[in-house]
Simulated assay, not measured.
Amino acid sequence: MNRRFSFFARRACVMLAVAASTALGGCSSSAPLFLPDGRATTLVECPAGSDSCAQQAAASCGGAFDTVRQSTNNGTLNLIYACRAK
Rank of each mutant, 00 (worst) to 15 (best):
M1L: 11
N2S: 11
N2Y: 11
R3H: 05
R4G: 11
R4H: 06
F5D: 06
F5H: 06
F7W: 02
F7M: 11
F7S: 13
F8D: 05
F8I: 00
A9G: 03
A9P: 00
R10P: 01
R11D: 00
A12D: 02
C13D: 03
C13A: 10
C13Y: 00
V14R: 00
V14E: 00
V14A: 01
M15C: 00
M15N: 01
L16Y: 01
L16T: 00
L16I: 00
L16H: 02
A17N: 01
A17T: 04
A17R: 00
A17M: 02
V18K: 04
V18T: 03
V18S: 04
A19V: 01
A19W: 05
A19L: 05
A20P: 14
A20L: 10
A20I: 02
S21G: 03
T22W: 01
T22H: 01
A23N: 01
L24F: 06
G26P: 03
C27P: 03
C27W: 08
S28P: 04
S28I: 03
S28D: 13
S30N: 12
S30P: 09
A31L: 11
P32I: 10
P32H: 15
L33C: 07
L35D: 06
L35M: 10
D37T: 12
G38N: 10
G38L: 01
G38D: 12
R39D: 11
A40K: 12
T41S: 03
T41R: 01
T42S: 10
T42G: 11
L43T: 06
V44S: 07
V44Y: 11
E45I: 14
E45H: 04
P47T: 15
G49N: 12
S50D: 12
D51L: 05
S52P: 00
S52D: 05
C53R: 13
A54K: 12
Q55G: 12
Q55D: 12
Q55Y: 04
A57Y: 15
A57Q: 08
A58N: 06
A59N: 07
S60M: 14
S60P: 06
C61T: 06
C61F: 15
G62S: 07
G63W: 09
G63Q: 04
A64L: 15
A64M: 09
A64T: 13
F65C: 12
D66L: 15
V68S: 14
V68D: 15
V68Q: 14
Q70K: 10
Q70C: 05
Q70Y: 13
S71I: 03
S71E: 09
N73Q: 13
N74W: 14
G75I: 04
G75N: 14
T76G: 08
L77T: 00
L77P: 12
N78V: 06
L79Y: 11
I80Q: 15
Y81R: 06
A82I: 01
C83I: 05
C83A: 13
A85N: 02
K86T: 07
